[in-house]
Computed example of a mutant assay.
Amino acid sequence: MKLDVLARAVAIADRCSEITGRGVAWLTLFVVLVSFAIVMLRYGFSIGSIALQELVLYAHGCVFMLGAAFTLKHNEHVRVDIFYQRFSVRGKAWVNLLGTVFLLMPVCLFIFYVSLDYVLLSWQLLESSKEPGGLAAVYLNKTLIWLLVITLFVQGLAEIGRNIIVLAQSKQHQQGEAS
């Protein structure tokens, strides 16, 4: 029964990461099109736009910051798997569980802690670009740091839950075979 509740919570977190990831994936097309427009305006018509250049940077930041949880969900994050690939399902679950608890979660908390004043000050000042003609929403761009932390933390909790389920089910399976 408890595993069912945990499985539902994991599914909700996975769904949130999936929706966010698929949504920001469309920003990559936007980045390409706006980058093309910037090049065409600059070299075809000698028109430069700081705002468009910053917009590309903001969108690019969104793709990476908001796509991290999606990447984790799909197990596409960077991993040195010299040994991992040879582990059993149970062994992989232990590696994933311990890695998430002792590496991912502390890093998320650390990033949040060290960015706290940085983002809050930006919001207090309603920080805008220092460039003439730049965007007036630098504080929103800096808020992506917190969104990265939140989405990764939630997906990390889902990964913890998923691996607890795998370990519990493999233990039940082993006990079933033993009797």
Rank of each mutant, 00 (worst) to 15 (best):
Cys16Pro: 05
Ser17Lys: 01
Asp4Trp: 05
Leu52His: 07
Val107Met: 10
Ala25Gly: 11
Phe30Pro: 02
Arg15Gln: 08
Phe110Cys: 07
Gly91Asp: 05
Gln124Tyr: 14
His60Tyr: 15
His60Ser: 15
Lys2Met: 15
Ser122Met: 11
Val114Ala: 13
Leu121Trp: 12
Ser35His: 08
Ser122Arg: 11
Asn163Ile: 00
Phe87Lys: 13
Ser170Asp: 04
Val114Gly: 08
Gly133Met: 06
His60Ile: 13
Phe36Ser: 10
Gly67Val: 00
Gly61Phe: 13
Ile12Cys: 05
Tyr58Pro: 09
Gly176Ile: 11
Trp146Thr: 07
Thr20Leu: 03
Ile82His: 13
Ser115Trp: 08
Asn163His: 00
Glu54Gly: 12
Lys73Val: 01
Gln85Ala: 13
Phe36Arg: 07
Gly161Ala: 02
Ala69Pro: 00
Leu57Gln: 15
Phe112Asn: 03
Ala13Ser: 03
Leu144Phe: 05
Ala13Pro: 01
Phe153Trp: 03
Arg86Gly: 12
Ala178Val: 08
Val138His: 12
Ser179Met: 14
Phe70Gly: 00
Leu116Ser: 14
Arg90Leu: 05
Leu97Met: 01
Val107Ile: 11
Glu18Tyr: 04
Leu135Asp: 05
Asp117Ala: 14
Gln85Ile: 10
Ile145Asn: 10
Leu125Trp: 11
Arg86Ser: 15
Glu159Asp: 08
Ala137Asn: 14
Leu152Asn: 04
Ser35Pro: 09
Leu52Met: 14
Ser115Gly: 15
Ile82Arg: 13
Leu126Tyr: 12
Ser46Cys: 13
Gln155Asn: 02
Leu135Ser: 07
Val138Asn: 12
Trp123Pro: 08
Val114Pro: 04
Gly99Trp: 02
Ala137Tyr: 11
Ile12Glu: 06
Arg42Ala: 11
Tyr118Ser: 07
Phe36Val: 15
Gly134Pro: 07
Ile160Trp: 00
Lys171Ile: 11
Leu98Asn: 06
Tyr58Val: 13
Ser46Glu: 15
Ala168Cys: 06
Leu147Thr: 06
Leu41Phe: 12
Leu6Met: 07
Val32Gly: 06
Gln175Leu: 14
Pro132Trp: 09
Leu3Gln: 03
Phe45Trp: 13
Val10Arg: 03
Phe153Ala: 04
Leu33Trp: 09
Arg79Asp: 12
Thr100Asp: 01
Phe64Tyr: 10
Arg162Gly: 00
Lys142Trp: 09
Val31Thr: 05
Lys73Asp: 00
Leu27Cys: 02
Phe64Ser: 08
Ala136Cys: 12
Gly23Cys: 09
